[in-house]
């Protein structure tokens, strides 16, 4: 089972690298993050205050991209059906897809988000660990939602609008807790509530991940099984 899991991860990594998806997702995210300050007059606004919104919208939009090729291509050419005929149950295949999507798209984006936060939005340097954890947990959640919506729409004629329509409401709690747990300002005095607030939000975000990980993977597997049986 573990062998199949690792084989699938190796294969999908190879596919992603050959297709050049790694850089396309990353550059899409960077484009979103850099475009926002250009569209707003940076002098009139506190850019740091709106930076969580920009970062999370960028992460949300970019998290939808990798699984399109990873799942859709494999579904179309029958690979998913064949992979389901191995010793590994479909749950393992769904988990492997999830892992590859996160590794190839979200992991580089975490560093891009941190770098742009520091450079473009003047986040405080001491918040780097807190913000890294937040984006890590949040991107795990967003990829999970993307996995479910992609599995549900395999073989559909609904197009991209359907993907965003479905994942938007599902991502709302992640967006709220994620944005609340980013620290964008240095606290003015040490007893300020800003630290406790971000910590609470981070704990809630992590609880959300723990609570939804297994049900969402299970639902994705169910969707995958339906898709394969109706191919």
């Amino acid at each position: 089972m573990l062998c199949v899991f690792l084989a699938l991860i190796r294969r999908d990594m190879a596919v992603v690298l050959r297709n050049g998806q790694l850089s396309s997702t990353l550059s899409f995210f960077i484009m979103v993050v850099v475009f926002f300050p250009l569209a707003i007059d940076p002098a009139s606004l506190d850019l740091a205050a709106i930076s969580p919104a920009i970062i999370w919208i960028g992460l949300f939009l970019a998290a939808q991209l990798p699984l399109e090729r990873l799942l859709h291509d494999d579904y179309q050419d029958g690979s998913l059906a064949l992979w389901s005929l191995t010793r590994a149950p479909l749950e393992v295949i769904a988990t492997a897809k999830y892992a590859v999507a996160w590794l190839t798209a979200s992991l580089p984006m975490i560093f891009a988000a941190l770098a742009s936060g520091m450079l473009v939005y003047q986040w405080p340097m001491d918040a780097i660990l807190n913000n890294m954890l937040t984006i890590l947990v949040g991107s795990l959640l967003l990829t999970l939602i993307s996995l479910l919506t992609r599995c549900l729409t395999l073989g559909s004629r609904g197009g991209k609008g359907l993907i965003y329509l479905m994942s938007m409401p599902l991502s709302l709690p992640t967006l709220i807790f994620g944005a609340a747990s980013l620290r964008t300002h240095t606290p003015t005095d040490l007893n300020t509530s800003i630290d406790t607030e971000t910590t609470t939000a981070l704990i809630l975000l992590s609880l959300l991940l723990l609570a939804t990980l297994i049900p969402m993977l299970w639902a994705s597997t169910l969707a995958l099984r339906n898709a394969i049986s109706h191919q």
Partner: peptide
Amino acid sequence: YVGHELALNSAL
């Protein structure tokens, strides 16, 4: 099982 779909990834 060998079906109609050839299950070959075009990038590989």
